[in-house]
C-alpha cells in the first residue's frame, strides 16, 4: 500500500534519514522502532508532506506522492497523529473532531458515531475544550481526530508518549481495533515491547538507517533488540 524507496531527508542541517526503504502492506500494522534521534519522526513527517525529502520516493497505492502538499496527502487517505498529541486545546472535543474531517464535504454524523463508539469517553466530553482532557483522553482525541478524515493509512507518532502503562494498553487495544476495521497502521514507537507485540512487521531504525526488519515476533525474540530496546 505504502512503498518507501531510498528516502533521504535533511532536517535541521543534518541528514536525519539516510536512504531508507520499507513497505507497509494493506491491512497490516507496521512499526518503526528506534531510539531518540534515529529519524523516525522525520520519516513520518516526510510521508505526510510536512517536510520535503532530498531524495527517494514515497509511493502510495501505486501513485507517487513524494513532496506533495500535506492537504493533498490527507486527501489521498494518509493521516498522521502527531507526536505529543497536538490536539487543539481551545477548541471543544467536537470541534477538534470536525477539524479532522476538514477536507471532507459530506455528512459527518456516521463518522462521529464511529469515533464515539471507539472512544465512549469522548462522547461524554463533546463540549469540553480539548485542553482540559487528561493525557490519555487527549491521545484518544488525537486518534479520533485522525480517523475523522476516513484515512486508509493512519500514521501514529509515539502514541504511548507520557501516558500511564494502563492507558498505554488501552491505546494499543484501540489501535488493533481500528486495524481490524480495515485501516492500515504505521506506528512509530520507543515502547518497543508494546509496539512489536502489536505489529505484523517491524523495522528498527538507527541513526537514519534501517538496520533490522522482520515480523513483530521475530524482532521480539532477537537478542540484539532485547539488549538495546527491551532492557533484558
Amino acid at each position: 500500500m505504502l512503498e518507501i524507496k531510498n528516502l533521504k531527508v535533511n532536517y535541521g542541517g543534518i541528514e536525519a534519514v539516510k536512504g531508507i526503504s520499507f513497505s507497509v502492506p494493506e491491512g497490516s500494522i507496521v512499526t518503526l522502532i528506534g531510539a531518540n534521534g534515529a529519524g523516525k519522526s522525520t520519516t513520518l513527517r516526510t510521508i505526510s508532506g510536512l517536510i520535503r525529502p532530498n531524495g527517494g520516493s514515497v509511493i502510495f497505492q501505486g501513485g507517487d506522492i513524494t513532496g506533495m502538499e500535506p492537504a493533498a496527502i490527507v486527501e489521498k487517505g494518509i493521516t498522521m497523529v502527531p507526536e505529543g498529541r497536538k490536539i487543539f486545546p481551545d477548541l471543544t472535543v467536537l470541534e477538534n473532531l470536525k477539524i479532522g474531517a476538514y477536507l471532507r464535504k459530506d455528512n459527518l454524523n456516521d463518522d462521529l458515531e464511529w469515533v464515539f463508539s471507539l472512544f465512549p469517553r469522548l462522547k461524554e466530553r463533546t463540549w469540553q475544550p480539548g485542553g482540559t482532557l487528561s493525557g490519555g483522553e487527549q491521545q484518544m482525541l488525537a486518534v479520533g481526530r485522525a480517523l475523522m478524515s476516513r484515512p486508509k493509512l493512519i500514521m501514529m507518532d509515539e502514541p504511548s508518549l507520557g501516558l500511564a502503562p494502563l492507558v498505554v494498553r488501552d491505546i494499543f487495544n484501540i489501535i488493533q481495533e481500528i486495524n481490524r476495521q480495515g485501516v492500515t497502521i504505521l506506528l512509530i514507537e520507543q515502547n518497543a515491547n508494546m509496539a512489536l507485540k502489536t505489529a505484523d512487521i517491524g523495522y528498527v531504525m538507527e541513526t537514519g538507517r534501517i538496520t533490522l526488519s522482520g515480523s513483530g515476533a521475530e524482532l521480539l525474540a532477537n537478542e540484539g533488540i532485547k539488549a538495546a530496546y527491551l532492557g533484558s
Binding site: P70, M80, E95, I99, Y102, R145
Partner: peptide, 23 residues
C-alpha cells in the same frame, strides 16, 4: 463556520492543523 474552526486550529497549533489537511 468551518473556516472559523480552521482559523482557530491554526492559532492553537500550526503543525497539527497542517497535518489535518488545512492549507
Amino acid at each position: 463556520s468551518s473556516y472559523g474552526r480552521a482559523f482557530k486550529a491554526i492559532r492553537d497549533d500550526e503543525i497539527a492543523a497542517e497535518a489535518m489537511g488545512i492549507n
